[in-house]
């Protein structure tokens, strides 16, 4: 019975998987998202945000969502004239939420990358970000070469830091965590020699926790953070782009920064981090060239 059963089992699993994936292809063309009119009609918009990533998206002691991303979310709800249902997302499931239309917008510190742009549609950006690496004061890592072959670097699954290191430094051993809080606890307990994440994160972490230094403040290309909607949801995408441009006229995002980020990053980083009205301040030709390069590389793979 043994050999035959095993073969039969294997065959059955294969058949099941292929059947599932075929139906998956067939279902892809269906519209999963809701247009602006449909959202207004239902009276509620579903927005995916982080619930444990202060100061961008977190829950305060009264159970209310707060932060830089949430500040924008609240404004979107107000301008659409609908109630907001915030959904707690993790870095690793943000794309999935949009692909299934379970949320209308993701406002979870979502970095724009060419790979993600194939899966979701990004609106105009509202923040700048690069990668950074933080390490303990007694062994500051200022260059990736310093990471030995037995050392482990902590990353959060599904973040840009993970993608970047896997692609550009495959020799570095990564220790992956699903939630921000877990990664932080692991790093503080010394499970890894360094922690790679968005530079905003590591700068804030080092500011708040004495004994840690951001040895590498800017790694990789400069990226932007933008709201994202389901692929093909042009109605909501256009509405968001108009919203971001018109909010920029009132310096909305600087106000947002001063309300939510000032305590963490100080006045110095305001103009570096904030993008007002969807227009990155610095000339973005370099970033675009880099993005085009990555895109070409992805296609080649």
């Amino acid at each position: 019975m043994k050999k035959q059963t095993k073969a039969a089992l294997f065959g059955l699993t294969l058949a099941l998987t292929s059947a599932l994936s075929m139906t998956a292809f067939a279902g892809d063309s269906d519209k999963v998202y809701r247009t602006v009119d449909e959202i207004k009609e239902s009276g509620t918009i579903n927005i995916g945000v982080f619930s444990d990533k202060s100061p961008f998206g977190y829950v305060d002691e009264n159970g209310d969502y707060q932060g830089y991303d949430v500040y924008l979310g609240n404004q979107i709800g107000k301008d659409l004239g609908v109630d907001i249902n915030y959904v707690s997302t993790e870095a690793a499931n943000r794309v999935e939420y949009l692909k299934t239309g379970k949320v209308d917008i993701i406002l979870a510190n979502f970095t724009v990358t060419p790979e993600r742009a194939e899966e979701v549609d990004f609106a105009l950006p509202y923040m700048n970000v690069a990668l950074g690496v933080v390490s303990p004061d007694d062994h500051v890592i200022t260059s990736l070469d310093q990471i030995g072959k037995d050392d482990q670097v902590i990353v959060i699954s599904g973040t840009t830091a993970e993608t970047y290191l896997v692609k550009n430094n495959p020799e570095i051993k990564l220790q992956k965590y699903d939630a921000y809080a877990e990664a932080k606890t692991a790093f503080e307990n010394g499970s890894g020699v360094a922690w790679a994440n968005d530079n905003t994160e590591v700068i804030a972490f080092a500011n708040e926790n004495p004994g840690y230094t951001v040895g590498i403040p800017s790694l990789g290309s400069n990226d932007t953070i933008a709201p994202a909607v389901s692929k093909g949801n042009d109605s909501l995408l256009n509405w968001l782009n108009d919203e971001i441009v018109s909010l920029g006229k009132d310096n909305f995002f600087h106000k947002d920064y001063e309300e939510t980020l000032l305590d963490t990053y100080g006045k110095d980083y305001e103009d570096t981090l904030v993008i007002e009205g969807g227009q990155p301040a610095e000339a973005s030709t370099e970033a675009e060239a880099a993005a085009a390069e990555t895109e070409a590389a992805t296609e080649a793979e």
């Binding site: 619930s51 444990d52 977190y58 002691e61």
Partner: peptide, 17 residues
């Protein structure tokens, strides 16, 4: 991971906030 806020998640939220 599927958006349900249970005891551990609330714990993480409190720590982070």
């Amino acid at each position: 991971m599927i958006g349900i806020v249970e005891v551990l998640k609330v714990g993480q939220q409190i720590i982070e906030a």
